[in-house]
């Protein structure tokens, strides 16, 4: 049985938006298709070895914890770059997208460095952008609606090397101005969407799994279709409640 190796970065510090749900979805959707998976928590002070993993997850945290994590991430920066170049899959959510970029300038003008695996930069806005988020998302020319919830003070703008994960139909997205949400570069995805994002968006979950399996085996897999009726109903409720017409 092929084992997909998942690295969960800073699960103790960065976990405030039900991030465990994303991990559960990745594991279960692999399991239901006959793949096994392992989860390795990597915390402050631990080494990150790029060749040990196929998918790397980082969730959202409080400002104070994010600061603690940011400094530790600097020590892993070179390893993360080499992993990204090698095609490892990244899903970095909320605080994660900010840490994946060049850096974050907080409300007092302090600069918190990022690791730069996504070409984007973030600075704190005056207000928090909170609420339901609905996107027209696009990955490798394939499109789908993606739903979630956002709650962030950061305003993120993408550079030329990153493409948005989607365009905003409802909510604020990266910065509340250019209607973009998230960022994609190689197989690294950053997003402000939690909820958590994967349970109600099986399309996105399966894209990540496909990439992770390809990273592990070197072959593009054909994923066995799963019954997504519950997922689709939950997504439909979220879209309707957000006031977006399908």
């Amino acid at each position: 049985m092929t084992e997909i190796r998942i690295c969960h970065l800073y699960p103790k510090e960065m976990n405030i938006y039900g991030d465990r749900g994303n991990i559960a979805v990745i594991q279960k959707r692999l399991e239901w298709r006959g793949y096994s998976s392992s989860i390795t928590p990597i915390s402050t002070g631990d080494d990150f070895t790029p060749t040990n993993f196929d998918l790397c997850y980082l969730g959202g945290g409080q400002d104070r914890d994010q600061m603690i994590v940011a400094y530790d991430l600097q020590k892993k920066s070179a390893a993360l770059h080499s992993a990204a170049k090698d095609g490892m899959v990244f899903l970095w959510v909320c605080g994660g997208i900010q840490l994946a970029g060049e850096g974050y300038t907080d409300s007092e003008g302090r600069r918190i460095p990022g690791v730069g695996i996504l070409d984007l930069d973030t600075s704190a806005g005056k207000s928090r952008l909170i609420g339901d988020l609905v996107l027209d998302a696009e990955l490798n020319g394939d499109t789908c609606k993606v739903v979630g919830y956002e709650n962030h003070a950061g305003r993120t703008f993408l550079g030329p090397d990153a493409t948005p994960l989607g365009s905003v139909l409802k909510g604020h997205g990266n910065n509340g101005i250019d209607r973009t949400e998230g960022a994609v570069q190689r197989r690294a995805i950053g997003t402000y969407m939690h909820g958590p994002i994967l349970p109600k968006n099986p399309w996105l979950a399966d894209k990540l799994l496909s990439w992770a399996i390809e990273h592990k085996t070197g072959k593009v897999p054909t994923l066995t279709p799963l019954d997504n009726s519950l997922e689709n109903l939950a997504q439909q409720v979220a879209i309707t409640r957000a006031g977006v017409k399908r």
Binding site: G18, A24, I130, Y149, H194
Partner: peptide
Amino acid sequence: DRTADGKDVSWIWD
């Protein structure tokens, strides 16, 4: 997920 409950239901995963 009304105002008094919190609009964000992600907490059920915790």
